[in-house]
Amino acid sequence: KKIKIKIKVYNPETKEVLELEIEVSEEEAEELAKKLAEELEKKGYKIEEVEI
């Protein structure tokens, strides 16, 4: 079964909002969402919402 992940991120420095969407297997979904959120935060983005 495929799971659709939508991530909306906001960069306070540039006032930019990015929306990302990807489909992955159920097993990958939670781990991938967690890794993406961590990487984006390292780059200065503030995570507003992660929906699985």
Results as ranks from 00 to 15, higher is better:
Leu36Asn: 00
Lys4Gln: 07
Glu39Ser: 04
Glu28His: 15
Lys2Asn: 06
Leu32Thr: 12
Lys4Arg: 09
Lys2Pro: 11
Glu21Asp: 08
Glu28Gln: 12
Lys35His: 09
Ile7Leu: 08
Ala37Lys: 13
Glu27Tyr: 11
Ile7Ala: 03
Ser25Pro: 15
Ile52Lys: 01
Leu18Ser: 03
Val17Asn: 10
Leu18Phe: 15
Ala37Leu: 12
Glu51Trp: 12
Glu49Pro: 00
Glu48Val: 12
Glu41Asn: 04
Glu28Pro: 08
Lys8Met: 02
Tyr10Gly: 07
Leu40Tyr: 07
Ala29Asn: 01
Glu48Phe: 11
Ile47Asn: 00
Glu31Trp: 08
Val50Ile: 09
Ser25Ile: 13
Leu36Tyr: 07
Glu19His: 13
Glu28Leu: 10
Glu21Lys: 15
Val17Tyr: 13
Leu36Ile: 08
Lys34Glu: 04
Ala33Asp: 01
Glu30Leu: 08
Glu38Pro: 00
Glu48Tyr: 09
Glu41Ser: 06
Val9Leu: 12
Glu26Gly: 10
Lys35Phe: 05
Glu31Ser: 08
Val50Asn: 01
Ile22His: 11
Gly44Ala: 00
Leu20Ser: 02
Ile22Ala: 14
Lys15Cys: 10
Val9Tyr: 15
Ser25Thr: 03
Tyr10Cys: 06
Ile52Met: 10
Ile47Ala: 00
Glu19Leu: 15
Lys8Cys: 03
Glu41Ala: 11
Thr14Arg: 08
Glu41Asp: 02
Lys42Pro: 00
Lys1Pro: 11
Val50Glu: 01
Lys4Tyr: 12
Lys42Met: 02
Glu30Lys: 07
Ala29Trp: 07
Glu13Arg: 11
Lys42Tyr: 03
Ala33Tyr: 08
Ile47Asp: 03
Lys34Ile: 12
Tyr45Asp: 13
Leu20Met: 07
Lys4Leu: 13
Glu49Met: 11
Tyr45His: 13
Tyr45Gly: 12
Glu39Met: 08
Glu23Asn: 14
Ile3Cys: 12
Glu19Trp: 13
Glu23Cys: 12
Glu28Trp: 09
Glu26Ser: 11
Glu38Asp: 09
Glu13Leu: 14
Glu13Phe: 14
Glu41Pro: 01
Glu39Ala: 06
Lys8Thr: 12
Ile7Glu: 00
Val9Gly: 15
Lys8Leu: 01
Gly44Ile: 00
Lys6Tyr: 11
Lys4Thr: 13
Glu49Arg: 05
Gly44Trp: 01
Lys6Ser: 04
Leu36Val: 07
Val50Arg: 00
